[in-house]
Computed example of a mutant assay.
Amino acid sequence: DPMRPFSEERGAVEQGLLAIRELVVWLKASAAALGDLFSASGGSPRVIPTEAAFAEELMETYRQCERIGYRPTGMLQMLGEHGAIDTARRLMAAPPSEGFHRLALLNRLDLAIESIALREPWRALFTDQELAKAERRLRR
């Protein structure tokens, strides 16, 4: 009850926080089984769009860029400073970067943050406005 003094509600709040902690532990332990549960029938397990999974996707993209002779060190630095999702949001909100133009020249916009954000399961991490901006940028 938000109208009661906190001291009277402290026990209920502590119980709720303990229940949340137990839920988090269970979710972590059950992640693989939950992924199987939500995967497409007959297909491989679906990737759950988490920050860690998205970060791994961006690191794989970095490795693919290296293989074609482009090293997106700015993106790598931003990943370390801001995390994967915030890095993608910052890059998509800013004017097209030098890296975006470089990927366009290499005919590899499939490696651009915008392309990655538009793919499943990553779409769920972004707003409709962010996705619409990514689509517009890729069409130019």
Rank of each mutant, 00 (worst) to 15 (best):
G42A: 11
L76W: 13
D86W: 09
A33P: 00
G11P: 01
E81P: 04
D128G: 06
F100T: 11
G99E: 10
G69A: 04
R21L: 10
R102I: 13
L79F: 10
K28L: 09
H101D: 14
L138N: 03
R4F: 00
A33D: 06
Q77H: 13
A112W: 00
L27G: 04
A94L: 05
H101L: 14
P95T: 13
E114T: 06
M3S: 09
R140L: 14
A52I: 00
E57F: 03
E98K: 15
G16E: 14
M59P: 00
A134T: 00
A93I: 06
G42M: 10
L37P: 05
E81F: 04
A12I: 10
P121I: 01
Q77R: 15
L106S: 05
L27V: 09
A40H: 12
R10L: 11
L58Q: 06
F54M: 01
E8D: 12
E51H: 13
T127I: 03
L118V: 08
R108A: 14
E114Q: 14
R46K: 14
D36F: 10
M92D: 04
R139S: 04
R46C: 07
G74M: 07
S97P: 01
E9I: 07
E22K: 11
A104Q: 15
E51S: 12
L105F: 04
Q77C: 10
V47T: 14
M3V: 02
A124V: 07
E130Q: 09
P49H: 04
L76S: 08
F6G: 02
L109Q: 11
I116C: 01
E8N: 06
S7L: 06
L79A: 10
G69C: 07
I20M: 08
R10E: 11
A19I: 02
P96H: 02
D36Y: 13
L37W: 07
L105I: 02
A93T: 11
V24P: 02
A93K: 14
L111D: 08
A53D: 09
K133D: 02
L18K: 12
R67P: 01
L18F: 02
T50H: 05
Q129N: 01
D86P: 01
M78R: 15
E114F: 08
P2L: 13
D86N: 13
I48S: 08
I85E: 06
L109F: 03
A132W: 08
A93D: 14
L118M: 11
S30H: 10
G11H: 13
T127S: 15
G83C: 02
L125K: 00
H82W: 13
L118D: 03
